[in-house]
């Protein structure tokens, strides 16, 4: 099993060099097998991709992806042959177990015989929604056929085994909200509320907020008071970044729709306004998504 976070860019801090005429001149590129012009020697990043070095941290809200590989490790001249390989996987989360859909490239057919040294690779994806311990359980079954010397099949049996991979999902964003009614709002226009939100980045890396939205109940409409506030002239660098432990404050104005449907009020007299949804990207474009529970007004 290998986790499939996005591949990373090669990173190498450029070595300042003396003039080429100097006897102390070093050609680090030749030693590192980089041909002239292949890489940018003055910049730390290079467009050469590397696979994720390790599992890394798993965060709530992230789209978790990993690849599973079944390999035939039998020696090439073995009399046993492996076929009908089936891989099944499920994710055990603190609240229950869900089966996972396995994707594979379209060219493979599941009944194909797995020759010695060959591998079957599958990819699974799972949205991490809960904090805490997760276990990826992988069941593998295959038919093992023993061939006699004259290549006539003699005996076969089905074998199965199970592998477990455990990891912990940690929170990436902490969301604190505060709902207040806008004072002096004209009662004929309906009620107005201000939603203030503090987002704290609890992850180890910087995240870029892609979109934040307050999805209201039908009785209300919301206006973002943030960076995406109707400014078509700003096209880029407009998404805020949040460094680890940084807190970003955002706000929404929620207004009752005139002639809209009636408000939904809970048993204890709170009005349900809507819920907040946040989309972000972390390093190299890995995505995350989070939505809060229903936010309500204070009890009257």
């Amino acid at each position: 099993m290998t986790r499939l976070s996005r591949p990373a860019l090669s990173q190498r801090f450029p070595l300042p060099l003396p003039p080429k005429s100097s006897t102390a001149y070093i050609n680090p590129n030749a030693a590192l097998d980089l041909k002239p012009g292949e890489t940018d020697d003055e910049f730390i990043f290079n467009p050469v991709l590397t696979l994720p070095p390790a599992f890394g941290s798993a965060y709530v809200g992230e789209s978790f992806s990993c690849t599973l590989c079944a390999n035939n490790e039998l020696p090439g001249d073995a009399e046993r042959h492996v076929s009908s390989v089936r891989i099944e996987a499920e994710m055990q989360t603190p609240s229950g177990t869900s089966p996972l859909e396995l994707r594979q490239s379209e060219e493979e057919s599941p009944s194909l015989q797995l020759k010695s040294g060959e591998s079957i690779q599958k990819i699974v994806q799972f949205d991490l929604r809960e904090e805490g311990s997760h276990t990826l359980a992988v069941n593998l079954s295959y038919s093992e056929t023993t061939m006699s010397k004259d290549l006539s099949a003699s005996s076969g049996r089905v074998r199965t085994f199970r592998k477990l991979y455990q990891f912990v999902a940690r929170p990436c964003l902490s969301v604190r909200t505060k709902v207040s009614s806008v004072p002096n709002a004209n009662t004929e226009d309906g009620q107005k509320f201000l939603i203030e939100v503090q987002l704290e980045n609890l992850a180890d890396g910087t995240i870029i907020l892609k979109a934040v939205a307050f999805n209201t109940k039908p009785a209300f409409k919301s206006t973002s008071l943030n960076w995406d506030l109707a400014r078509p002239d700003v096209q880029h660098s407009s998404c805020p970044s949040v460094a680890p432990r940084d807190v970003l404050q955002i706000a929404f104005l929620v207004e009752q729709r005139i002639d809209g449907p009636s408000k939904e009020v809970t048993k204890d007299g709170r009005t349900t306004l809507g819920q907040l949804s946040i989309q972000w990207r972390s390093s190299m474009g890995d995505t995350g998504f989070l939505s809060t529970g229903w936010l309500t007004t204070k009890r009257k």
Partner: peptide
């Protein structure tokens, strides 16, 4: 562009 990609600011 490489810095933006590494950062995850893909629109930029």
């Amino acid at each position: 562009a490489l810095t933006y990609i590494a950062l995850g600011d893909l629109s930029a």
